[in-house]
Amino acid sequence: MIFRTACREALGAPALAMAATFLAFGAAVQAAGLSLSWGLAAALLVYGMPGQMVLVAAVNLPGGALPAVLGAATANARFLPMAVALSPWLGGGPRRWWALPFIAVTPWAMAMRRLPGLPEGQRLGWFLGFGLTSWLVAGTATILGHAIAPLLQGPVLALMLLVNPLYFTLILAHEVRVPPGRRAVIAGCCAAPLALLLPAAWGLLAAGLLSGTLAFLWGERRGRR
């Protein structure tokens, strides 16, 4: 029951954000001369857009994609703190490992909103329902994006790429209602320019690590109010 509820929840704004982003990714894969199977494997098994895009952009560089793997993995290193933050909500048993392929920013952000309010026994089911639906939307959109790549150009592509930041702005607007979330969002926004000054592969990670740690320490100092 909760699984179905979560599937339905994933089919609104989250699905639109996922679909727009992965349509654009499918088009980028096609434009780089890569096969659909490569794009689908990247979409479903990497399932982290910054790293995927780093790899696609590197394919046609003189050195090829291999030297870019470290940069792509670093760009997706946020999976680690996300999985740490999510894991305690999924229960301590081995079934929580089913969630592994679905840990990505869209399911994670919604899970951090929804899971604390659900009974303990329903949390994993909710995450699997939401995660699987988002994952299938991502795969389908990648296939479609690869097929209609020539149509996804100029203003259409730009507006599609805007869907994701808009969606996460709305997620963040919800997060700032509680003090820990507010501190993390403020610190992250203030640290964003740092990401521009540092090398692109790990600038965002460094900015997030520094600002997230400062926000956490700020909260500890204020007694977690």
Partner: peptide
């Protein structure tokens, strides 16, 4: 440790969105 990780993940997302809107 979990609260620290959540703070880092959220701050990283906030920085990412800030850059995507203001300096894409």
């Amino acid at each position: 440790f979990v609260r620290w990780a959540a703070s880092v993940a959220l701050a990283t997302l906030a920085a990412f969105i800030m850059l995507a809107i203001l300096a894409p």
